[in-house]
Amino acid sequence: MSHENEKHENHSTGYGLYIIVWLALLGLTSITVTIAGIDLGSYTLFVALTIAAIKSYLVISIFMHIKYEDPIFKVFILISVLTLAVIFLLTYFDIIYR
């Protein structure tokens, strides 16, 4: 187990990528704040969630190193994301038709 971990820990991405991702996250946050002041009607939630999803992807894949991990971890994350998506979908069946 420890050998495999060392293999991943040795993977170096350099600070450059982290700074780019950080700037991207800041940029996306400012877009969220800006859009909050604009009335997008029924698209408001969709846009906000899309931006949040992109931010989550960046954090999970780069900062949490999942991009460089074994497929099993990606499967785990995928299961969690799918569960969340299904929970969202089922909740919308209430919100939309209420």
Binding site: T83, V86, I87, L90, F93, D94, I95, I96, Y97, R98
Partner: peptide
Amino acid sequence: GYLVWAHHMFTSGISDTA
């Protein structure tokens, strides 16, 4: 088991579709 939670809420005013 994740997908059945709202059966606790049938009388709470959720939509008929749900």
